[in-house]
Design a protein around this nucleic acid. Structure first.
Lengths: 195, 195, 195, 195
DNA sequence: TATGAATGAGCGTTCATTCAT
DNA sequence: AATGAATGAACGCTCATTCAT
């Protein structure tokens, strides 16, 4: 019974993801999501407090999965440099192979109420903190410069990758996103300067 | 008479900026903007096609001003490194000294329709291209690595700065944004690596 | 212009009265009232805060008129006994000659939210107080017993008339309401007891 | 088994009374009543046709009990005057000592559909007829005036008491209701007039 | 009998836009 | 050019009732 309940919950989230990706945030009425999920409008409200709660849950669940994936894969890495490469690989690969999710997280979910965006901020935070941990590890192990401002730099790195994904989407995904990993990591590690 | 016309046009844009900054995107009805501008609701539609047109114009005008400022200030610089520093300085300083504009461009205007966001993309493009020009100049002059992917790197740089501004806003502006210029530019130029 | 505004306001109240009388409280959607008034749904909200506000206004305006009528007619009376008879006459006559109003005030408006019923209470209060004043006058002038509890008795009198009107409506108005005035006043004045 | 059935039936009515008294008519969903009664939502519909049927039954049962009480207590009385006093005593005492019932019958149940109110009317009818019987007895025995209109007067009496109870509730029960019996009966018997 | 998850009709309100003045 | 009263489409959410188990 618990699995049936969980099933319908996921079913609705899945439907929401598809509907939002196809119709945009403002074109995604609760009725449309319900229809896509194959349930009645009212059923939505047995599993979610309100429309916003669907979106928050969607973001939280999926981003949670991503962060879990990051954590487990990074444990396997030996150096901070490899870890940073791993992060960028997962970031680009996951969003490239799940375009609906990419579209919804990068484009649609950002045009929501303050409350939702605060929730999204909370969901993104663990990821940004993970980047910070890798930076600190690299500093401790002598791989990274010891004068880095971790709090600033983790945002520089997250923002850089985030923008690359967004511009890839807006461009119409005309090139491979995962093919940008090497050059992105190279930029993070060596910067712009010659030599 | 042309100036009178332009006057009211600017008056409405000014009002829109203030209203959105104070009430958020969803709390900014046309009627509220009209009241703040001191005109009737209908008058808005003599100067703008529709509500979206106000926002697009707002973004375009203000960002256009910024890009003009970038261009003129960068002409004065001698090297690509200095130019990049200048860009970051202006980016952080302008948004720090104009919090309403920062709030509206970073937070509020992003929660709009696809059409508006595409327009915003067009307005941001000249800025991103400017960054690209600086990169190319640095490569030509031997200051920057010759193997840089300009199209990718200009997004990495823009995204990094963009995220820093956003997180500064969300944090409640508890620290100086312009004080982040040095460390940001350092990251762009030298990257993370030791030595 | 003020009269035009007032015109539409009254037009909506008139429509509300008719719609509620014909369809009952629960069958009276805002859209139905708007249609009956010959205006758009949204227009309602230019004149009233919300649906409840229509009902409150309806009650307040009409009952206010009644109380005004009571006051002016009672001034003309010489004794408390005549005044009491006048009150009962107006009460029965007005509601008999305005069945829609009677139906809405006696039956429909009572099935509303606590907030509305409190408002109705406020609107009825001046009327009950008027009855109290007449009682006090009668006591002062020696027409009424000096040991009357005014606060209690005004409710006994109001409740008695109120119930008579309601039962007349529920019975299907099969008899004349105004024909009950004499016997009602007789009961108030002399009570049940034999001589 | 019949008793088990009756048990759950009463259990639901009891729960309905409590829930309506605590949450008001509009705040009393079937689900809430079911929860209070400790049964499933669907179980309600094994004992009652629909929600309205619960309320009708509630009123009918409780008012039936009251009328039974009236009848048995009045048999013990010798004169119509004493009987009338008894009626008023029971009316005020019962509702004062059962505030939930008072609140629900006087305030909440009145804001219901026409159908329900007609049913309530039927339930109240035997009580009003009882008052009529007492009046007739008093006329026969020479205690009451012989020119009374029984059909009218029984409503005057019921309405008077009904309004006193309601205003006592609305006032916040700041005084004793049963302490109003003497003055109420005095008004019924002697009316207002001096001498 | 009893359950409770699922249903889906129903409605008050907002607000961008229009148009008669 | 300017006004602002009027428009009416659009939608999230509730809750009485049903029915498969």
């Amino acid at each position: 019974m618990a699995s049936r309940k969980k099933e319908k919950y996921s079913q609705i989230l899945e439907a929401a993801l598809k509907v939002i990706a196809e119709n945009g945030f403002h074109g995604s009425q609760v009725a449309k999501i319900a229809k896509e999920a194959g349930v009645a409008d009212g059923t939505i409200y047995l599993y979610f407090k309100n429309k916003e709660d669907i979106l928050i849950s969607l973001f939280r669940e999926r981003l949670g999965d991503l962060v879990d994936m990051f954590n487990s894969r990074i444990e396997e890495t030996d150096s901070a440099k490899t870890a940073l490469r791993k992060i960028c690989e997962i970031h680009y690969n996951e969003l490239e192979s799940n375009v609906n999710l990419a579209y919804v997280t990068q484009i649609e979910l950002r045009q929501s109420s303050l409350e939702l965006r605060q929730e999204i901020g909370l969901a993104v935070k663990p990821y940004i903190e993970l980047i910070g941990q890798v930076l600190r590890k690299g500093m401790d192990e002598g791989d990274f410069r010891s004068d880095l401002d971790v709090k600033l730099t983790r945002h520089l790195i997250f923002g850089a990758m985030d923008e690359v994904v967004t511009s890839w989407l807006i461009s119409g995904r005309k090139y491979s996103l995962s093919a940008q990993v090497d050059k992105t990591v190279e930029f993070f590690l060596r910067g712009l300067e010659q030599g």
